[in-house]
């Protein structure tokens, strides 16, 4: 693995679900790397093998012996990072969306914002933290690859530059036409994550429909932070507009009341009478 270069496109992961046997070697590699606690049947878990504070990645079992690896997508324009009030979640130039627990205040807005429902919380801890895959940022910086892709015995999940992986996915589509799932109304198979919510660094190709991976079957191509920015960009004009309007109203009404008081005074005829 070459050392990362700033000029290059981001690093990414390509998961080919047709090659996955659900052996969970990637899960255990991840758990070992981050020294994660054993999976326990906490109240907030529906299934022991769901993503959790003890599992940054997991295998989703689908009918017909299909296995789909679940993990943070490392969106190109991550909703979680845009939602984070203190910048504890951050998109790095190499691709990973990383987490700084020293900044986090535990508001959990990132968990609300994620279109894939990825970030988990260590609810069991007295000082809980947001837990999610960070694409082994430290290993990437050191020129290595994530623990999961390194561990996969079947090459079902591979690591590389995003553009190279997109090309590899298209190569597989071309090599075995008909093997991969074609979404209804499309001409050919598609790479899940190429365009979703502005594109992600974790890409999937599959022989089954992967739309269950998002909160809605079709997440659209628009990055979510733009939705917020549409409102946030109106803040400065609102500040000046409201302040100016209120000052204006105060001045006008104050003046009108003063004039009325003077008129009333004149009507009363007492030039010696004082206003206030």
């Amino acid at each position: 693995m070459s050392t990362p270069d700033r000029g290059d496109p981001m690093f990414a992961i390509l998961t080919d679900t047709t090659r996955c046997t659900g052996c969970e070697t990637c899960v255990h590699a991840c758990q070992r790397t981050y020294n994660l606690p054993p999976d326990r049947a906490w109240r907030w878990k529906q299934k022991i093998d769901d993503l959790s504070s003890s599992r940054f990645t997991t295998i989703i079992r689908r009918p017909g012996s299909k296995f789909v690896r679940q993990q943070c997508r490392h969106c190109l324009q991550p909703a979680c990072a845009s939602a984070c009030i203190v910048g504890a979640l951050r998109k790095t130039e190499l691709g990973p969306v990383i987490y700084d627990e020293k900044r986090c205040m535990g508001c959990r807005y990132c968990m609300m914002a994620c279109p894939y429902g990825i970030p988990r919380y260590s609810w069991e801890a007295k000082v809980p933290l947001v837990r999610k895959c960070i694409l082994c940022y430290d290993r990437l910086k050191a020129g290595g690859q994530p623990a999961c892709t390194e561990a996969c015995p079947y090459g079902a999940t591979i690591f590389g530059r995003r553009d190279a992986l997109l090309a590899e996915a298209r190569r597989r589509f071309a090599a075995e036409p008909g093997k991969y799932f074609t979404p209804p109304g499309r001409s050919g198979p598609e790479i899940y994550g190429e365009h979703e919510v502005g594109g992600t660094c974790v890409l999937y190709i599959s022989d089954i429909d992967l739309s269950f991976l998002g909160w809605r079957p079709n997440l659209g191509d628009e990055p979510l932070p733009a939705l917020t920015w549409a409102a946030l960009s109106k803040v400065p004009p609102v500040i000046f507009g409201v302040a100016a309007a209120m000052s204006g109203v105060y001045w006008i009404i104050g003046r009108r009341m003063k004039l009325q008081a003077e008129a009333a005074q004149r009507a009363a005829g007492g030039p010696g009478a004082t206003g206030h």
Binding site: V86, A88, A231
Partner: peptide, 10 residues
């Protein structure tokens, strides 16, 4: 640690 893209920050 302001993050002015967050509504929550505002």
């Amino acid at each position: 640690f302001p993050q002015h893209h967050s509504v929550l920050f505002e």
